[in-house]
Design a protein around this nucleic acid. Structure first.
Length: 124
DNA sequence: CTGATGACTATAG
DNA sequence: CCTATAGCCATCA
């Protein structure tokens, strides 16, 4: 039984992660770590990456709005998935500058997060 | 149980 | 800015 609960917990975490990502609005991006934090995970950036990796094709989850904390895509520059994600972001007006996104400009900042992500230094 | 892995991140040089 | 390193943590062999 404990094993079953463990599985439920694992799925609950994944569900929370995907729910957070679904809340990221078009034209904005969020980092893996940011999504993890909003999903209630501690140091769970890698778990977010895992959840996206196992995401079925055709999902309603906007996986492409998730990037690394430095504004780079998680895929190797120039790779097929890298181009794919770049294209999806461009459709929403999120453009890459020298292969990276200016996080200070595009990062999603949910209301309650304002005090946690100190946007003060974000708006040049 | 141990060690390797990876759609991560913060820090140091 | 970049590379190297060390944490981090669920999964898997």
């Amino acid at each position: 039984m404990s094993k079953l609960l463990e599985k439920d917990e694992r799925e609950a975490r994944t569900r929370r992660i995907l729910d957070v990502i679904r809340d990221v609005p078009a034209g904005c991006v969020a980092s893996y770590g940011q999504v993890a934090a909003l999903a209630g995970l501690n140091n769970g950036a890698r778990q977010v990456g895992r959840a996206l990796r196992e995401l079925p094709a055709g999902s309603d989850v906007p996986w492409y709005r998730i990037v690394t904390a430095s504004g780079r895509l998680a895929f190797a520059v120039g790779s097929a998935p890298w181009h794919h994600q770049t294209k999806k972001l461009a459709q929403e007006g999120v453009v890459l500058k020298d292969q990276r996104i200016e996080m200070q400009h595009y990062r999603w900042q949910p209301d309650l997060d304002e005090i946690l992500w100190k946007p003060s230094a974000a708006w040049d």
